[in-house]
Amino acid sequence: MNTPQHVAIIMDGNGRWAERRGQTRTSGHRKGVEAVRGAVRSAGELGVKYLTLFAFSSENWRRPEDEVNDLMGLLKVFIRRDLAELHRENVRVRIIGDRQTLKHDILALLTEAEDLTRNNRALELIIAFNYGGRDDIARAARLLASKAARGEIDPASICEETISAALDTADIPDPDMIIRTSGEQRISNFLIWQAAYAEFVFLPCLWPDFDRASFEDALREFGSRDRRFGNVAERDLALGS
């Protein structure tokens, strides 16, 4: 199987999973955390080197306050409960997203997770928290503008590589594949710069039902794709097309 180096996942469908069962949205999010644990385990076993999970977008703050509080609570539980195991499994945890507006307790937990696992190498688990693709680019633009204003860089020298190096994902390879669950077929402001050449796989299952078989299905679909990166496929060259 042609395994992608970097898989990113838009974990969609917790609320609908709960509603279909007559449960609260919070119960759906709790079940979704279980799916996160399974996805991390499967990624390592299947040979994926980087796994990025869209945990909480910069737009999610608009949700009802009770739901946001529940999500923050689940994040705390996940880190406190799972961090030691992730560390034992040699998983490096990294956070992308805007940290400036986060509450101190959340920021401290995220920083602790990064510091403890910094030297781990089996799998890099990138958690997109308070993240938005446009915001990522805007923050990179402000950083480069500040450097230019101070005379540290020549504005004329700014190129794709310069911008990529200013993003939250500066030293992380672009995703080879982006999976979205729940049947929705949109990117929802996720890694919009980095996804320029990613393969998209849209799965009908809701996120709490995402399991190893779902992961393997997505990897098989990825393996069937002809990744051209703007070039002509070899078979097309042979046919003269």
Rank of each mutant, 00 (worst) to 15 (best):
T26E: 15
R62I: 00
P4A: 13
L51H: 11
F56Q: 03
Q5P: 01
A35I: 05
V36T: 06
R63C: 10
R63S: 09
E65I: 13
A43N: 04
W17M: 11
S58W: 03
S57Y: 01
Q23W: 12
G28A: 10
H29E: 07
T24I: 06
V40H: 03
R20Y: 06
R63Q: 09
N60T: 01
S58T: 14
G28T: 08
F56C: 08
L46H: 08
A18E: 07
W61G: 03
R16Q: 12
G38N: 12
E65R: 15
R16D: 08
F54P: 07
Q5R: 15
R21M: 01
R16Y: 13
N14Y: 04
R30D: 00
R62W: 00
F56S: 06
K31I: 00
G15D: 04
Q5K: 15
E59S: 12
W17R: 10
K49R: 14
R63E: 13
W17Y: 06
N60E: 02
V40T: 06
V33N: 03
F54H: 10
G38K: 10
R20L: 15
V68C: 07
D66P: 00
T52R: 12
E34Q: 11
R63T: 13
F56G: 01
T24K: 14
A8W: 02
W61Q: 01
R20V: 01
Q5S: 14
R16H: 12
I10L: 11
E34A: 07
D66K: 08
A8Y: 10
L53F: 08
A18H: 10
G28D: 13
R21A: 03
P64K: 01
T52S: 15
G38F: 00
H6V: 11
R25M: 05
D12R: 09
R21N: 02
A35E: 04
R63D: 10
N60S: 08
G44Q: 13
R62T: 06
L53D: 00
V33W: 14
W61M: 05
G44P: 12
V40F: 04
L53R: 06
A35Q: 02
A35C: 09
H29N: 00
P4V: 02
T52M: 13
E59T: 04
R41T: 06
D12N: 14
A55K: 04
V40N: 05
G13A: 12
R63H: 11
V40K: 04
R16V: 03
R21F: 03
S57V: 12
E67G: 13
V7T: 11
Y50C: 02
V33M: 15
H6E: 13
R37C: 08
S57K: 00
H29W: 05
E59N: 01
S57N: 01
A39S: 13
A18G: 13
L46A: 15
R62Y: 01
R20N: 15
F56E: 11
K31E: 15
L46R: 11
S42Y: 07
W17N: 03
E65A: 14
Q5M: 11
E65H: 13
G44F: 07
L46D: 08
L46C: 14
P64M: 09
S58Y: 04
Q23N: 05
S27C: 07
W61S: 00
M11F: 08
D66L: 09
V33A: 14
A43D: 01
E34R: 09
P64G: 08
R16T: 08
